[in-house]
Each structure stands twice: as C-alpha cells, then as structure tokens.
Computed example of a mutant assay.
Amino acid sequence: MFYIGCHLSAAKGYLAMGKEAVRLGANVFQFFTRNPRGGSVKALDLEDIEKYNAFHAEHRFGTLLAHAPYTMNPCAAKEDLRTFARNTMKEDLARLELLPDVMFNFHPGSHVKQGVEIGIPLIADALNDILSAGGKTLVLLETMAGKGSEVGRSFEELRAILDRVEQKERMGVCLDTCHVYDGGYDIIGDLDGVLQVFDDIIGLDRLKAIHLNDSKNPIGSHKDRHEKIGEGTLGLAGIANIINHPKLCHLPFYLETPNEAAGYAKEISLLKSLREEK
C-alpha cells in the first residue's frame, strides 16, 4: 500500500480533514496539534473525533501525523519556554490518545547558543518527563536542516537524544527530505549510502515517517526552504527513487510543499503515477 498525503488545516475538525484528504486522493494526512506559531488549542470535540474514527476505519487510512507547534522548544535557554514545551506535549499526547492510529512529530529544538551538549540532555529530560505519563502514541524526532542553533542537524545528534530516553519503544524518527538534503546528506546521488549511515547510527527500525519535500537550495545549504515536488534541487527522478526505495516504500509519506489544495491533489496524483508496483 502506498500511503501518501499532505498537511491539512485542523481548524474544521478531524472529520473535515479526513473528507478533504479523500477528495485530494490521499490516504494519510498531517495536521498541527494547535496554532503552529503560538500555543492556543481548540477545545476537544468528542463527537467529531468519534465520527472521524469511523471514517478512518471505513476508508482504511494509514497512520496520521500530528505536528507540534514551531513555538515548542524543549531545550530553550529560558525555563518558562521549556516548561511550555513540556506542558504542550503532555496535553497534545493526552488528546491524541483518542485517535485510532496517529504519531506525534516535533522539531527537537534550538539550543540558543547553549550548545548541543546542553541542548541534547534538556530534550531527553523533557521526553522522559513527558513519556512517564503513559500512552500509546509514538513520538518522532524530525531530522533538521541545521539552520541557526537547531538540534537534530545530524543523525548523531538524534541518536544522542534517543540514547538518553528511557522509554525507547515510544520513540522514532521522521525523515524530512528537504531537511536532510539541506543538512548535507546526499539522498539524490547516494540514497543507499545515506540510508546505510542512518541504519548504522540510529537504526532503520526507528524510521517511521517521511516528510516528502523538494528543496529550493543546494545540498548542505542549511536553509530549510521547501519546494514543490520536481521543481527543486532534489528533482522528480530523485523523489521517485525515494518513494520506490525498498527500505522506504512501506512508510507513510506526508507532503509539506508550498501548495494549496489543488496543488496537493496534483502532486499526490503525480506521485501515484511514479510509484512502482511491488
């Protein structure tokens, strides 16, 4: 099964997102858990969740991806920001327990000139506190492009976080194609080699999702600027290789390209046409 979808607005609720996904030709989707540039969150609509869960089963959707807000920084220099991050993730994970099949993805954070040797333990400490509350939802660290003081710019940094998390069975990684390419990993010229490095450092069993994006920038630029599929430096042939790779093709793919609904529908159709039968 080729699980492909895009990022949808959660403003109208889960059922509306599910129906929009079907209209666009998708069988998975991603959404922000709350205001991505702030922290406000809608009140839970239990009736909407119940209707979505039935819709999910009827349409055989793959695993959804809930994305944390960009304002969440568990390794911030200021304690109040770290507390906000912990509380936000705890609340989001508790709410996600009501959905049948979902993972929670977040940017590991920015150490804000403290250094990764400070940032990594802060992230892991936060995760140990958050996961102690229990639950079934898998938490994913996202690969980052390495702009500014981002943590997670290398597979080694992600591994260092994972090594410090006590409940390792609750942890995974989301690989963003734009981010890793901008971060210096040549997924176009040497995808096999990059995946081998990932396996050696983190383990491919930890790779649970793919953010499928082209990039506006050359490899190693550390700029994190997404582009539409086939219109950037990764190119259509490179992206086709990614979605068909035997070590990746079983994973869910989520588009985060600069598109509106019509553009996403076009990209989903294009990617389906590039997908090889296994």
Rank of each mutant, 00 (worst) to 15 (best):
F104C: 00
F104S: 06
N105K: 02
F106V: 09
F106C: 00
H107P: 00
H107C: 01
G109A: 12
G109R: 12
H111D: 13
K113T: 15
K113W: 12
K113V: 07
Q114S: 15
Q114A: 14
Q114D: 15
G115C: 04
G115P: 05
V116G: 13
E117P: 00
I120T: 00
L122G: 00
I123W: 12
A124K: 07
A124H: 09
D125F: 10
D125Y: 03
D125G: 12
A126S: 10
A126H: 02
L127M: 14
N128H: 10
N128D: 02
N128M: 00
D129V: 10
L131W: 08
L131E: 04
L131C: 02
A133N: 15
A133R: 13
G135W: 05
G135P: 07
K136I: 10
K136M: 05
T137C: 15
T137S: 14
T137L: 15
L138R: 14
L138D: 01
L140Y: 07
L141R: 05
L141W: 05
L141M: 15
E142G: 11
E142W: 12
T143R: 04
T143D: 04
T143F: 03
G146S: 00
G146I: 00
G146P: 01
K147P: 03
G148Y: 04
G148K: 03
S149D: 15
E150G: 03
V151H: 00
V151N: 02
G152E: 03
R153C: 11
R153D: 13
S154M: 06
S154L: 10
S154Q: 07
F155D: 02
F155W: 03
F155H: 02
F155S: 04
F155R: 06
E157A: 06
E157N: 06
L158T: 11
R159H: 06
A160C: 12
A160D: 09
A160W: 10
I161D: 10
I161G: 09
L162T: 15
L162Q: 12
D163V: 14
D163R: 07
D163P: 02
R164A: 14
R164S: 10
V165A: 09
E166G: 13
E166Y: 15
Q167S: 13
K168P: 00
K168L: 12
E169L: 04
E169A: 04
R170E: 06
R170D: 08
M171G: 09
G172A: 15
V173P: 08
C174D: 07
L175G: 01
L175H: 03
D176P: 08
D176T: 10
D176A: 04
T177L: 06
T177V: 01
C178T: 12
C178S: 11
C178E: 02
C178G: 02
H179F: 08
H179E: 03
H179P: 00
V180G: 09
V180P: 07
D182N: 14
D182R: 10
G183F: 04
G183N: 01
G183I: 07
G184D: 06
G184K: 05
G184T: 10
G184A: 01
Y185V: 05
D186K: 04
D186G: 10
I187S: 07
I187A: 06
I188R: 08
I188Y: 05
G189H: 11
D190F: 07
D190Y: 03
L191M: 09
L191W: 11
L191I: 07
D192S: 08
G193W: 02
G193N: 02
G193F: 01
V194A: 04
V194L: 09
